[in-house]
Amino acid sequence: MSSRGSEELVVISVTGADKPGIVAGITAILAKHNVNIVDIAQTVVRGIFSMIMIVDLSTGNITLPKLREELYIKGKELGVEVSVHHIDVFKAMQRV
């Protein structure tokens, strides 16, 4: 299913109380490791901030488990919930 060449796509979701600096905090880690953001969707519903990002690890210098670890720590700092899953999970479950 990884039809787009050598990309290694990962889904990052961030949810929590809305406040300044959430996007900056998360993207700073991605930039530090040269991870490219492929797609981003963001909503705020009743003060709950929700962001879903699809990023490409193939340009970066970090493995998925390491990135998850760093993002978890950053999420704790920011007071938001972060989850990191390989895109194949979503493709397997949502495509026939």
């Binding site: 787009r4 796509l9 889904v11 979701s13 492929v38 797609d39 969707a41 909503t43 929700s50 879903i52 699809i54 919930e81 989850s83 899953h85 895109i87 999970v89 979503f90 493709k91 479950m93 949502q94």
Partner: peptide, 18 residues
Amino acid sequence: PRIISPEEISEVLEMLLF
């Protein structure tokens, strides 16, 4: 076009996380 929609991602995340 989006690889996979935010709604589809949210549905899976809800299953896994909640």
